[in-house]
Design a protein around this nucleic acid. Sequence first.
DNA 1: CCATGATCATTA
DNA 2: TAATGATCATGG
Length: 206
Amino acid sequence: MKIVTRATAIKNLKKYIGHDLAKLAKKFGITTYKNGKQNKGWKGLILERLAGLECNVSKAPNGLSYELKSVAFRYIKDKLVPKETMAITMINPQELKEHDFFKSHCWAKLKSIVFCAVMWHGKNAKKAELLEVGSLDFLEDDDLIKEIRADYDFIRKKLTKYGFESLTGKDGKWIQARTKGPGHGSTSRAFYARKELVKKIFEIGE
DNA sequence: CCATGATCATTA
DNA sequence: TAATGATCATGG
C-alpha cells in the first residue's frame, strides 16, 4: 500500500508540465482510441498514474483526501479559458437528500482539489500537453463557497420537491446537476463546475 | 451492468 | 460561442 500525499502528487505531476500526454498514454498502455472513438477518460487516467495513484479508477470517498481533476483549456481571442465544465462527482439522490453541503462528497472533493490544465487541440485530438498543475483548499467561510452552497441547497430542495428526474444542467450558478452516465438510455447525474468556477479555481490556485 | 474518467453533439 | 444533454472506454 502506497500512500501518496497531495504535495507528492503535485510534485510528480509538475515534472510532466509541457509533456505530451499522448506519448505517456502509450507508455502506460492506456487506450486513447478504439474503433475510431475516443476514450474520453484517458487523460484523467494518465494524470492519476502520473500522480502516483495507480489504482484509482473507482470513486474515492475513502482513502485519499484529495481529488485529481483535469480541465481542457483553449484559446478564445488569444486568451486561455476553460473549454468546458468540469465534472466534480456523481450525485447520489439519497445522500443529497440526507446530507447538507459540508457533509457531501461534492464538498469533500471540491475543498481539496488538485487540478491539471491540459491544452485542447480540437476534437479527437491525439495530443494534449500538460499546461499547469495546481492545488486549492477552500475554506468553509469563503464567500464563493457560500454561493456554491446556495446552489447545492437549491438543487437539493428541487430534488426533494420535484424528484431526481427534474434536475437539469440549468440549475445552479456555480455548480450544476448535469446528466452523466454510461449512455444508451441509462443516465444518472453528477455535479459539474461551470466554466466561471473553473476559472476561479485557477485564479485562486495559482 | 454501472460508476468514473471527461469530451462530443446539437441547438440556439 | 455558450449551454445543456448524451455518450464512450475502462475496470470492478
